[in-house]
Design a protein around this nucleic acid. Structure first.
Lengths: 354, 354
DNA sequence: TTGTAGGCGTTATCAC
DNA sequence: GTGATAACGCCTACAA
């Protein structure tokens, strides 16, 4: 049984025969309290397990914090992030949370936006590509006392307060396990850009799981540049590349797609009539992915809780600013979720909770 | 950009040249307001999109609601439920939420507990087995104005306000899909008690997915009574049954375990040296399940967000009571999550968020 | 070093 | 019908 004792500062003051402000001084460490008094108050507070009433505190302080979020994501992924942002805004705007969202269309635009945002916010949350210039900027902000957190993509080398997102190495391992359990013995092609830090981590994890199994031989990775706005020509390039791979490797039984070319890859395999023979695994739900899973062209996709990635960084930072809550860890690692046909309904346009 | 406008009742009163009380009467529909005045106020409120400050409201109302939770679960599952309960208590106890948890050791004990709880709470949340007596009791409570919600196990035929938990039919379908993707062609044994409503739903879903595939033949279900405290003798009974099934069906390639006998089943298959040939799928993480997955004796397990099942029913009911928020649907369906070796770390002793 | 007083935005009670 | 006025628990001057 958890019960609200409802003891107030006034009540404590009455019982200890002191004034409310003295209690307040002790609680909020404002100084100017006799050692003996302080001791007495602390002891009593400890004893009755007092915690200040959040509603009253917010009301009295009338704090107002503006937190900005900057990212550069594919549309469908951004939508899910935004759902999380909307939810936490709904919960906390009455306690003084203001949010600025800046969705960039390119990496360059993003850097400019962050510079601009820095002047008008109490905290910053961003998902950005590694860039020495950006790291310097972030460290400057932190120096200036503006807390910065990263989400989805961490920024190694920077002094960001914490990272909220998935473990990409582990997500590679998970993909490896799924393929090992579903694919027939044979060759597995890896599609992705190992120049990209995150893709590289995934590929490493993937290899670590599969290389010790005798059933499979890994080929690739084939570099296909990561691009959110898959153009027709790029799409064609992917299709041709996959066709070639499949032709050269007749014993191809799986494709591991690390970037956003999942749709093109699946279409190529399907066109060759090899859909039932070649298993395809990828990441995240982008435009078109849903249909591929429904059509059994893609066996599974690994997701990383985009809703939470929008929701929690804001919550954590706001509670730090407004309630002096501590950040518990510098890495909040999100769950890796396996999405297949029969649980797809919970990930695509899911209007349920969390 | 989402920004806090911070318009107060006092401000509205000033602008409309009325008193705060009048504004309050309109907002909270207390009556005694001239039609014209009311109209004017409503229009203005609509225009500026006013919503009352939650902190101030909580402070002024000083509401105090006690919500009780009653369940009867295996230990490890209950632990996860409790984590969710703790979290929401942490968040809302300052706004007047008190919680009573009653974990029963048997169905009979649970019924008695619910009767007792009914006298001292503002709302009730329960996960209980179907029982005409219980349905009558619940309906009585609802009649008396005490909202009742179900979680994990719904109570069909009752007037509960909402159900929060998973779709068991769909969880059966998902198990079917996983097995279809992982198992070699052959026979699939179903272990579970079809007398139990939930097991029956899972089995139906499972069959609906697999029966149309030619690769597999379903056998069973074998009734093994559901029991949370798997005794040594029951364990032995399961092992013997599985050995027999495996012996009679040499082309057994998968076992679908609907109840808590997962560990016994896996041990039996392992003892027969058929672990690599026979894939095993089950539900939830119980004592011992983790080790089975790590040892590749169980391929995957389907989970249903136990944390959320503890967290959200309380949140929803409290916000209904304290903030007059509406319950949006009478069925909040939780995600079905696939847990395998490489994402097991996020489900077992996971100290991350959500 | 300690105490007093007023206010945050809302609700509730009373008087006009 | 309407308008004062006093809470709720905490914080922040300012006074003693």
């Amino acid at each position: 049984m958890r019960e609200n004792k409802n003891i107030t500062v006034t009540e404590i003051a009455r019982r200890l025969d002191l004034s409310r402000s003295t209690i307040d001084r002790v609680i909020n460490e404002r100084g100017n309290v006799a050692a003996a008094t302080k001791e007495k108050v602390l002891k009593y507070i400890e004893k009755i397990n007092y915690t200040p009433n959040r509603a009253a505190r917010h009301l009295a302080k009338m704090t107002n914090y503006t937190i900005a979020i900057s990212y550069y994501f594919p549309r469908k992924f951004a939508e899910k992030i935004n759902q999380g942002i909307d939810e936490i805004y709904e919960e906390l705007n009455h306690y003084g949370l203001n949010i600025i969202i800046r969705a960039a269309q390119s990496r360059e635009e993003q850097l400019a936006q962050i510079k601009e945002l820095a002047e008008q916010v109490d905290a910053l949350i961003l998902s950005a590509w590694d860039k020495p210039e950006l790291i310097t900027l972030i460290n400057e902000l932190v120096e200036r006392g503006i807390p910065v957190a990263t989400f989805n993509r961490d920024l190694p080398g920077s002094n960001r307060l914490f990272y909220f997102g998935c473990d990409y190495y582990q997500s590679g391992r998970l993909a490896g396990e799924i393929i090992a359990k579903m694919a027939d013995p044979g060759k597995i092609a890896i599609i992705g850009d190992p120049e990209d830090r995150i893709a590289a981590q995934r590929i490493t994890g993937f290899k670590d799981v599969l290389q010790k199994l005798n059933d499979f031989k890994l080929i690739g990775p084939w570099e296909i540049t990561q691009n959110f706005n898959l153009t027709a020509s790029l799409n064609k390039e992917v299709v041709e590349k996959v066709e070639e791979i499949s032709l050269v490797n007749q014993d191809l039984t799986a494709v591991f797609v690390v970037n956003q070319t999942l749709k093109a890859v699946a279409e190529a395999i399907n066109k060759l009539g090899k859909a039932s023979q070649v298993k395809i695994i990828g990441y995240d739900l982008y435009q078109g992915t849903v249909k591929l899973i429904e059509a059994d062209l893609v066996q599974a996709v690994i997701c990383q809780q985009p809703f939470n990635q929008g929701y929690f960084p804001l919550k954590l930072l706001f509670e730090m600013l407004a309630d002096q809550k501590d950040i518990q860890t510098e890495e909040y690692i999100t769950k890796l979720e396996i999405v297949m046909k029969e649980n797809l309904c919970y990930y695509d346009n899911y209007r349920g909770l969390s």
